[in-house]
Design a protein around this nucleic acid. Structure first.
Lengths: 73, 73
DNA sequence: TTGTGACTATAAGTCCGTG
DNA sequence: ACACGGACTTATAGTCACA
């Protein structure tokens, strides 16, 4: 588990979030509001810049109407 | 998503880690070494005290030989 | 509507120890 | 082998103005 692995874990997670969000037809701001998180935070998650914590994984999953499993792969 | 929900998310995750760890016959210290994490940290994760981040979810899952999906439920 | 840099506050995570 | 604590360093959470 090196730096590159960590990068791709975050990237894949972000891509999943973006994919599900777009499938639902929401903007980042819509999703952020549903999660109770900041718009710019959601943006940075989708870009793979954040090492999102367990609780926020659930918040995002719930807002997207999916299981947390589907986000972590 | 209130305080109690967050508590139970962490608790359930910790229980899963403990369950898989014991199934493999490892001590907390064994697992910690395999993950590259601290012994006391693994203990507090299993007790449901930690809001574990995405990368550490993967580190723990890999060390346990399971999919991250199986830990987050 | 989203990307980005900068930022502060809080929690993650480490290392020492005890029972 | 594990729970738990104190003190500590580093990363993440969370927010903002601006492009």
């Amino acid at each position: 588990m090196d730096e590159g692995d960590e990068h791709s874990i975050k990237k894949v997670f972000g891509e999943q979030v973006r994919r599900f969000r777009k499938a639902k037809g929401h903007s980042q701001e819509d999703l952020a509001d549903m999660c109770g998180l900041d718009r710019t935070y959601i943006g940075s998650v989708e870009r793979g810049e954040r090492n999102v914590s367990l609780v926020n994984i659930y918040k995002i999953a719930i807002a997207l109407g999916v299981s947390p499993k589907e986000l972590v792969n």
